[in-house]
Structure formats: structure tokens, C-alpha cells
């Protein structure tokens, strides 16, 4: 990460503009590593100011993938803070990258976030129906199929 990803100008901008970046040697903070559920290094963790981990990755990620994962973490934190416009913008951005592995999961959470905002489960189902259409072979399609098959 230190040789390839962190020096990348887009990564520098993303972390400096949108996060509080902190680096800690795991062995010197074992309690923190446990709370963040870090089971391998490097641990790449997005957390809110409430210290709850929102999105955890391990291992090397190239810059483009890393930025997408950071956006996903930001979206989860924004949803948790009820900043739904920001959350939906980020989820939509990830879901639009159809080939990205995180895209169907982003669409899944977009549905949950829409439901949390409106309290109308039809809003969730609308997003989940897109998962079935765009990623029919994915685990996420199997996750949402029950809810879509038993619509009121």
C-alpha cells in the first residue's frame, strides 16, 4: 500500500479531503485491532466518530479499487448518520460501475438506505429489483429474491 496506493494523487486527495486518516502499528494497539475486528494486516478500516467500524478490508488494494472501497465506507457512515442524500449519491456511483465487485452490494445497501429514509419498503424493493436485473448470477440476487418474490 505504501509503495503503490498511498502515493497515488487521487488516493491522497480522497483521504485528505474526506477522511481523518490514521495509521497505527497493530501490535502496539491490540485492543483497537480487536475492536475493529482486524484479523490480518494490513487492515483498511472505515469507522465513524462513534468508533464503530463501518467497512473493513484486508490486504493490498490498487488505487482505483481502494478509492471505490473508501466511497463504500463513506456511504455506510453517511447512512448511519441519516445523511441520506450523501449516502445515496455514493451508493449510486458505485452501483453504476456495473463490473465492480462491490456494485451489487452497493445497490443492496442503497435499497436499505432508501427504506430507512422513507419507511416505505417499496423503495427498498425498487433498488433490489435492479440487482436482479443487472447481476442475476450474484449472491446479492439470491439474497433479495425472497423479499421480491413475496411483495405485498
Amino acid at each position: 500500500m505504501g509503495a503503490v496506493t498511498y502515493p497515488h494523487p487521487d488516493v491522497v486527495k480522497e483521504l485528505n479531503d474526506n477522511f481523518v486518516p490514521v495509521k497505527i502499528e497493530s501490535a502496539k494497539a491490540p485492543e483497537l485491532a480487536r475492536r475493529m475486528n482486524a484479523r490480518w494486516l494490513p487492515g483498511l478500516i472505515v469507522a465513524g466518530a462513534d468508533e464503530r467500524p463501518a467497512h473493513t478490508q484486508i490486504g493490498f488494494l490498487p488505487p482505483e479499487d481502494f478509492i471505490l472501497e473508501l466511497h463504500f465506507g463513506r456511504a455506510i457512515v453517511a447512512m448511519s448518520r441519516k445523511l441520506y442524500d450523501e449516502a445515496h449519491r455514493l451508493f449510486a456511483e458505485i452501483a453504476a460501475r456495473v463490473e465492480a465487485e462491490r456494485a451489487p452490494e452497493a445497490c443492496y445497501w442503497w435499497g436499505i438506505s432508501a427504506y430507512r429514509q422513507s419507511k416505505n419498503f417499496a423503495d427498498c424493493q425498487e433498488h433490489w429489483a435492479r440487482i436482479v436485473a443487472r447481476w442475476p448470477e450474484s449472491l446479492w440476487t439470491r439474497k433479495v429474491s425472497y423479499a421480491l418474490d413475496h411483495r405485498a
Binding site: 474526506n18 481523518v20 486518516p21 502499528e25 487492515g43 483498511l44 478500516i45 469507522a47
Partner: peptide, 30 residues
């Protein structure tokens, strides 16, 4: 250059003040 912090408690405080999430890089000894 990334403006890394190295103290968790200070990072939490700054996250609360700035409304930005924390990115934590847990690493092995360098």
C-alpha cells in the same frame, strides 16, 4: 502526501469535530 495521524483518540476527536469518517490503516512493523 497523506496527512496521517498516529493517535486513535485524537483521530476520533477530529472526526467528531469535522464530521468526517476515520480511515484506519492498521499495519505491521515497518
Amino acid at each position: 502526501m497523506i496527512e496521517w495521524m498516529e493517535n486513535w483518540d485524537e483521530a476520533v476527536k477530529r472526526a467528531g469535530e469535522s464530521s468526517r469518517p476515520i480511515f484506519l490503516f492498521l499495519h505491521s512493523p515497518s
